[in-house]
């Protein structure tokens, strides 16, 4: 009996040790990065950000020559992880890359959140992908054909149309809030969700009349003839939905909303180390095999660095400030 107990404990210790040390595939000294790199996703497994970066990780790993492990640091609507990223130590935390979602991170502009960090608190590496917002209706919807009819219908039938959207402060919600602010007499009832499943369930099941989502995720439902797009909230017609007119094209109002994903490192990280990461990402993003997988995933890769990236961040900030969603519902 005693022997068995000891055996059990030994097994337990071995398992624990294995779990802790297994990822330590250490590389030769001197090279950077010298060991595994962590890629922090601030949301739970299964979400859009998690899927994107789990797909990307092996390709960065190939370029860096070390394993890249995705870890999910959840909570605070992304802020548990983002707060850490803003405070990473450039020496100790040099083997870790963060990911930041736009416009999500601008939730700090909402005064109710009492946040001290801003976009300037992060050391951005590159912009990775951009998925424009899109509005869709059931495939067999016959009350309206395109965005023009839809807006007209909403204006003529106050309180009748319900739209499904992700929670207040999301890119989807901001697209609707922008329309309600700048298109006269455009007011819809809104059903909120924390993810796309509930929204799609509502619009396909006939509970709501339209849904605000992202081109990438929703394209397969269009191909499956469950829904059809009526407008895309992008500067110009989008490659992923070339037949869908932009919001601006139809109404003249620049309603440009999207889910964007960027990557960052510790503030003050040595310039040469940052360069290693940025170059690896740039090369990985051009890997044909990777791009093919992303295409299968309907994900729109849009690589940006330096000024180009910062201009995009600025534009996004201006858009969020123009919508001022925190004043809308109260």
């Amino acid at each position: 009996m005693k022997f068995k107990r000891r055996d059990m404990l030994r097994m337990g210790a071995a398992t624990t040790a294995g779990a802790v040390f297994a990822p330590g595939l250490i590389r030769a000294q001197g090279a950077f990065p010298s060991g595994p790199v962590q890629l922090v996703v601030p949301f739970s497994p299964g979400g859009g950000a998690d899927r994107t970066f789990r797909l990307f990780a092996p390709y960065i790993s190939e370029e860096l020559g070390v394993p890249v492990n995705v870890i999910n640091i959840e909570g605070g609507g992304g802020w548990v992880a983002w707060q850490q990223m803003a405070n990473w130590d450039p020496e100790e935390d040099d083997h870790i890359i963060g990911t930041i979602n736009f416009p999500h991170v601008f939730s700090y502009l909402d005064p109710r959140m009492n946040r001290s960090e801003t976009v300037e608190s992060f050391n951005f590496l590159a912009w990775h992908s951009l998925d424009p917002c899109v509005w869709a209706v059931r495939h067999d919807e016959d009350r309206f054909d395109g965005l023009e009819d839809f807006i007209e219908y909403v204006q003529n039938n106050p309180g009748e149309i319900t739209m499904s959207s992700t929670a207040v402060g999301s890119d989807d919600h901001m697209g609707i809030a922008f329309a309600e602010k700048f298109i006269p007499d455009f007011n819809v009832r809104k059903l909120y969700a924390n993810g796309d499943s509930k929204k799609l369930q509502e619009v396909i099941g006939g509970v709501s009349d339209a849904v605000a989502g992202n081109v990438g995720y929703y394209s397969s439902f269009v191909e499956d003839e469950q829904i059809r797009f009526i407008t895309v909230l992008h500067e110009e017609r989008f490659d992923g939905a070339p037949d869908t007119p932009t919001f601006q094209e139809v109404t003249g109002e620049p309603n440009i909303s999207f889910a964007g994903r960027t990557m960052c490192v510790a503030n003050g990280l040595a310039e040469e180390k940052k360069q290693v990461y940025a170059d690896a990402i740039e090369r990985a993003i051009q890997n044909e095999e990777y791009l093919e997988r992303e295409r299968a995933n309907n994900n729109n890769i849009q690589f940006m660095r330096g000024d180009e990236m910062w201009n995009k961040i600025e534009e996004t900030r201006e858009y969020v400030e123009s919508v001022e969603f925190w004043n809308e519902e109260t």
Binding site: D110, R112, A167, V168, Y192, F325, E329, T330
Partner: peptide
């Protein structure tokens, strides 16, 4: 938690 219908904490 943050109320998804209003964004209010």
């Amino acid at each position: 938690g943050i109320d998804m219908n209003s964004g209010f904490p």
